[in-house]
Every structure is written in structure tokens, then in C-alpha cells.
Amino acid sequence: MRSQTRNKVWIFMEKNHVTTNLVLIITSAIIVIPLFWIIITAIKGPAEIFYRPFSLIPERFALFSNIAEAWSRAPFTNYYWNTVVVVMGLLVVQLIIAIPAAYAFARLEFKGKNLLFMIVLVKLMITAQSVLLPNYLLVSSLGLLDTKLAIALPYFSSPLAVLLFRQAFKQIPQEVVDAAEIDGCQGLKFIWHIGISLIKPMIVALSVISIVYHWNEFFWPMLVTDTAKARTLTIGLALFGLKGETGAEWTLTMAITIVVIIPLFFMFAVFRRQFINSFMQSGTTG
């Protein structure tokens, strides 16, 4: 009798994935704690940290005043602007450089094609961290330290972009290319008027990877910049956070953290499928 009930419970749990859901809920909850704690800290008034550090419901909603206070202490407007300029400018340059090259690798015949493509692929295997020092020496000898250009320069040629776009260009049927050529549309004209719209999904995928990677990048931009003139948001926030010794400043730091990560979460919410697929393809590089 008892074993029968136990069996029934077991079958119910199997059918409704009760155990599975339970394990996943608990793990997700643990992973979400830091995010949850950012929000709780960010909406607290700076003083409350001292007498009620672990309260879950803050006495007053101070998120906006915290953001305003932090904004007045450090040049976050500059940081934000620098980040947008670096990320967007870099993306445009990456596309301009990679699209014609990918087209050449995909649709044109020329001597040394395989060798040249190998040279591009090898760059895919060189991670940004292993070339910190050589790139720093170069940028510094060019007199470009503390500029936005220095942050972006090493990433202008993106092998991942070439790889993804080459794959996409290869899938365009030859008839489409021929038909366009009869109409006098070939080469760069073809790429601009027809090619780009045909490889659009890949352009979106690459853009997602590039934007997230460079929005988030910390160490390289930190190395080559010294002042708010060129520094990006991640660096500004990290330095602001490190300066904060007392708990009171943590409410400000966490408030700014929300401002920094909201664009990323917004992008993630809108392009969730696209995002996950892009990250599957990116692996080690941006």
C-alpha cells in the first residue's frame, strides 16, 4: 500500500519534472542573488546601509537620487559618450573592412587565396590578452595613448566577421550574382545594393557579439587610457567602485552598475534567440 503511494508520487514527479524544476529553480536563484543584491543596494538611501544593511525592503526608494549623486562625483556622461563612440565606431569600421574581404574570399578566384585566408584564421586564435603588451608598445610608440582610437585600433580587422560573412556570401545562389551582373551591378556595387541585405542575419549576429564584447571590455581600455577624455564606462564604474571604502558609496556604485548593464539586458531581452546563437559562434573572441 505504502509503496504504491510512493510509486504514484514518483510517477507524478517524473511526469511534471518536479525534481528537475526544483534543481533548476534553486540553481537559478543562487546565480541571480548578485543581481538581486545590486538592485536592493542601489535603491537604498546611502545612510540606510549603516543601520539596516540587510533589509530587503528599503525605507525609501533612492535609486534616482543615488544615480544623480554618483553622476555628480565622476564624469559618467563622458564615460557613456566615449563608450558609445568606441563601440559604434568600431562596429562600423569592422563591417566596412570585413564585408568586401569576406566577399572576395567567398566569391572571387585569386592566387594565394587559401594562404591569405589561413593568415586571417590564425588571428582568430590569438586572444586579446596574449597581445596586451605588444599592442601597448605599438599604440604608445604611435603617440596614441589616452585616445578612443587606441582602444579600438587592435580590433579593426575582425577575423570572426570575415568568417561569418564569408559563410553567408557563399550561400548566395550564383544566379542572383549573374542576374545582377547583367544589370551592370557587380563588385562593390553588388555588395552595397544586394549583398548586404542578403547577409543581414549574419551582420546582426556579428553586431551583437561586437557590441557586447566591447561594451564590456575592461583591461585593454584601462591600460591605454589615463583620463576621462577617453575612458569608457566599465573603467569609470570600476574605478568609482574601488574608491568607495564605506558602505554608503556602495549604494552609489550599485546604482551606476544598473545604468551600465541596462542597455545589455535590454538588448538581451529583445534579441534573446539571436544573442544565444551569436554567443555560441563567438567562443573565444569578439
Binding site: 537559478s28 548578485p34 571590455e217 575592461f218 573603467i235 570600476a238 538581451f268
Partner: peptide, 15 residues
């Protein structure tokens, strides 16, 4: 489970 991967590691460090 995936969200920590899209926020900057430097910001993760601060948190």
C-alpha cells in the same frame, strides 16, 4: 543562468 556572462566581468568583480 546566462545573464552573468553578458555583464562586464569587471562589473561582476565589483558586485
Amino acid at each position: 543562468l546566462f545573464y552573468p556572462h553578458i555583464i562586464p566581468l569587471a562589473v561582476g568583480a565589483l558586485i
